[in-house]
């Protein structure tokens, strides 16, 4: 399935806890869905059938977890082969991954650890993104991740992201909530950060909720509603971009479905302020 052209596309993560709202009651009817391929590759039975129905009814974006683009380990081409097959089987248009590492010394960690912002990291990551793009035969998008401590940085996060995007030719999956979280945790101006991003390379946007776990730390949980300052940052970001898809991430602690729809409507109302003029009259 294709995205609608010349209009805003607001997507939602497809999660098992709310699967019925997508497939049975139709209470959630996003313009596209996003899933982690790791959660669905080789899945059979009830959930395999559910996912086939999802991919029949909605355009599917993949947002990976295990590629570990910042790992010193060799890329896992067996895994990439499975991703490639999955992309073909489900007519996936976008495959994104995190600018982080999740595997080291041949051991998966199942979370996103920060890559040191360094010159050699840029070279290493760019080389790996190129290998992945060559193997898949398509550009990938890389997401700015939230991180909870700086790690031996030799450059700013903004410089790191810019260098990687410009040198690899990949797209940017700009997670606006992550910018907010990082700006709080690492004391920078999120608006300035957004302005410094390669905005012409943004493939799509992520929005989510987060949790403040201490006076000095916010964790990107995807388990809360989006707060107003993040909507404000999103508004600022959208105003600077051409029309791109927007995804609402929610992974657990699900509220009533109407609250999720309210959040999607909020996002849509913001993007329509700027992008609705892009609609070409029939």
């Amino acid at each position: 399935m294709n995205l609608r052209e010349n209009t805003s596309n607001i997507g939602m993560g497809f999660r098992r806890d709310i699967a019925d709202a997508f497939l049975k009651t139709n209470e959630i009817n996003p313009d596209f869905v996003e899933v982690a391929p790791e959660n669905w590759i080789n899945m059979g039975g009830y959930w395999g059938a559910q996912f086939k129905e999802v991919s029949r009814r909605f355009p599917v974006f993949l947002h990976g977890l295990s590629l570990s683009i910042g790992s010193p380990d060799e890329l896992d081409f067996d895994f990439l082969r499975q991703v490639k097959n999955f992309i073909e089987e489900h007519d996936v248009r976008v495959y994104s991954e995190h600018l982080s590492f999740a595997k080291l010394d041949n051991a998966h960690l199942y979370d996103l650890l920060p890559i040191p912002f360094r010159d050699d990291s840029v070279k290493h990551v760019v080389d790996r993104i190129n290998q992945v793009q060559d193997f898949l035969g398509m550009p990938i998008a890389i997401e700015n991740v939230s991180y909870y401590t700086p790690v031996a940085a030799q450059m700013t996060e903004s410089e790191f992201i810019n260098q990687i995007v410009s040198q690899s030719g990949c797209s940017l999956l700009l997670d606006v909530n992550n910018v907010y979280v990082n700006a709080f945790n690492h004391h920078y101006d999120p608006y300035e950060f957004i302005s410094g991003m390669p905005l012409d390379r943004v493939a799509y946007l992520h929005m989510a909720g987060h949790e403040q776990v201490s006076p000095t730390l916010i964790v990107d949980t995807h388990g809360e509603a989006i707060i107003d300052p993040v909507y404000d940052l999103f508004d600022f970001t959208v105003a600077k971009l051409k029309s791109v898809p927007v995804l609402l991430e929610r992974d657990f602690n699900f509220p009533e479905i109407r609250m999720l729809n309210h959040e999607m409507n909020q996002l849509r109302s913001i993007v329509n302020k700027y992008w609705i003029k892009d609609v070409v009259p029939a």
């Binding site: 979370d111 700086p150 790690v151 031996a152």
Partner: peptide, 16 residues
Amino acid sequence: IPGTTEEGLRQYRRLL
């Protein structure tokens, strides 16, 4: 680990 904060490291340990 150079440049890291104790709170941040503990958070990663907790999350993982």
